[in-house]
Write a protein that binds this DNA or RNA. Structure first.
Lengths: 378, 378
DNA sequence: CTGAAAGCGCTTACAG
DNA sequence: CTGAAAGCGCTTACAG
């Protein structure tokens, strides 16, 4: 494997990527279809026959029922091991009339929030003997969302958890049929949705207000806001930010709407960087904050010396960014656990931790001459 | 919501976190169990009765079979819509004898690689009418891994995809029963595993060698390597790195073993930062690179002026880090798609893009006096 | 303690 | 074109 031929072995200029030509994907296909044995798998009657009992007693030992003679029980167990028998989940659940799998619906399982929430759901589900499915929602195509919902809302489903932090999730909620257990992870108290579905949420509004107040208390005249996509027009984070500014008598700048990615934060951050009046920026998530900080740096406005930036989420990279990011930590894993508990309807208390402002190094006082002495009221 | 009371409204010092006391998790429970209708869901015989036909003709229209009179077909369709009938997937798959769900096994679904691979699997699966399940493997507990495998390897499963980039995944592969379709995402050509299971992999070895050669060609005397966990002792990335150093006649430093996180990279990066001989570091993933760069910065050794750092993965944050990270881009989404195709055994060609070195700003020539003129041979 | 019967909700043959 | 039968692999009553 070699860099593209270059006479002096120096870096080829004007070419940002090297295609590693020989670094191809290798696909090994051992036996087609895996180790799949051509013979059909062993069924409950097979082990019954071999053990010299009826399939009913096999069923009993599988399910740990009492009233099975210890000797026959041991015998059956031995045959089960010998034949490598594994009961069919499909058959079991059909006869039981209840599937033990919950499906989580999300527009993007690689984003920090959804990924962590999924992990929380899986953790709680596995502990309860449930399986978890994932179905991703097409953000651009409402018809596809409806189709996904349709596939997932099988009458035999154990429940559906929809991550409704964006439009796709809200659309899914809208087309959900009646008769299926659903829990929604909502952006914040949405009166309508909260009444229709059991739901979990974090107090985004208060958290955004606290983050904003933190920046104001540092001496900034006002705080700009770069918003991630939201399920509602009046996103709770936006509300909290605005309320905190109003309470302090500060100007309320126009919301800058963005996507989820660092690239989007960078694009939206450039005009902000060009505006000398901007000294403090709150971002809808940490990735946006990274992009904004990058734009500031590029414009020669170092963070936090010239401008302060605060994020949302506290992703694992936040503490190791340059500068380490001040952000609002959100417990998505706990939220996921709570989603599953609500599906089970056990009445167990919520476990997700409340949002927490983690103060690191990306926010500080505004540059001299732009300081604003203000008393922040509760 | 207020910061903790502080007489002058300044930041409380020596306290890194503010607990946003009132920002509690809200859990709304509308009707217990969701909108679950207490009445049982409608079955195929219900619509048959209402439509005045046998359940067989209903089955035929559901499955788009020909040989159904158009009039009765329309009639049945109308009743299906009216009663909101949805066929039970459980029953359907049991009678068909084949489940249309594949499960992916991974130790950590929030990490970039597994998350992106899962997304690729889901995309391909959804397009083919399959569902996808996720099951996370406990890295610390082999017994728990065996139990997870056991749950997932139901005889009715549509297939299992195991992400075997670490020990937990390899353990899962080891205890997999025969008779289930499995595809493994392997770190690189592992002769044994590759023969036992259909598998997909990227050419990590060549990519690591290319990245190493890139650093050497910049003039560094040698390249240190901070490794992410691996499934094998002789990880292909380590091999590629070592081979490139040897081919260039460079010293081969001790491998620094680390975890997956930026925090781990930081911990392992500190001793490296303290060692003035270290001028170039290759990292097993981008998160580790962030941690290493942070350690360097903290030690007053700016990247890339004093030391060069290269990562692996090209996560979305990489381009917006300070400095923008030079890294090897890996197509995990494509790999996931390929996994699903192998499960289906369609013989479709692999689609994952080959690894690609993305040159940004975290690697440059070594500081003066430490430059090494060397001719890098192919 | 154990088994023969009936059923979960759908399907694939096989008859009309 | 349509239906009565039998079966997918398990389960829950109900008898012995």
């Amino acid at each position: 494997l070699t860099p593209p031929p270059a006479a002096d072995d120096h870096l080829p200029c004007g070419r940002e990527h090297w295609l590693l030509a020989s670094a191809l994907v290798a696909v090994t296909s051992a036996s087609p279809g895996g180790r799949a044995d051509p013979s059909r798998s062993v069924r409950i009657r097979d082990v019954a026959r071999r053990a010299g009992v009826s399939h009913m007693t096999v069923s009993r030992v599988i399910n740990g029922h009492p009233h099975v003679k210890e000797a026959t029980r041991q015998q059956v167990l031995a045959v089960i091991r010998e034949m490598e028998y594994r009961p069919s989940r499909l058959a079991r659940e059909l006869s039981l009339g209840a599937s033990r799998t919950v499906t989580v619906l999300t527009a993007n399982p690689t984003l920090h929030g959804p990924a962590a929430l999924l992990q929380g759901v899986e953790e709680a589900a596995r502990a309860a003997g449930f399986s978890v499915g994932v179905c991703v929602l097409d953000s651009a195509d409402p018809a596809a969302v409806a189709q996904s919902v349709d596939r997932v809302c099988d009458p035999s489903t154990g429940g559906v958890i929809v991550i409704a932090y964006d439009l796709a999730g809200v659309r899914a909620l809208r087309v959900l049929p009646t008769g299926v257990r659903v829990v929604a992870a909502l952006e914040a108290t949405d009166a309508r949705a909260g009444r229709r579905y059991p739901s979990v949420m974090l107090d985004d509004r208060s958290a955004a207000a606290a983050a904003t107040r933190h920046l104001l208390s540092l001496g900034h005249r006002t705080v700009h806001y770069v918003a991630a996509p939201s399920s509602t027009r009046a996103s709770p984070r936006t509300q909290g930010w605005r309320a905190a500014l109003r309470a302090a008598g500060a100007d309320v700048p126009r919301v800058v709407t963005a996507g989820w990615s660092p690239a989007s934060g960078y694009r939206r951050g450039r005009p902000l960087a060009a505006n000398r009046d901007v000294t403090a920026v709150l971002c809808g998530n940490d990735d946006l904050a990274f992009g904004v900080i990058h734009a500031m740096r590029e414009a020669g406005r170092p963070v936090p010396d010239e401008v302060s930036v605060v994020g949302f989420d506290d992703i694992p990279q936040a503490a190791f960014y340059a500068p380490p990011l001040t952000t609002v930590r959100l417990d998505f894993v706990g939220l996921g656990r709570d989603c599953f508990r609500l599906i089970r309807d056990t009445g167990a208390p919520a476990t997700a931790a409340p949002p927490e402002l983690v103060i690191r190094a990306s926010a500080g006082p505004p540059p001299k001459g732009r300081m604003c002495i203000r008393r922040i009221s509760p």
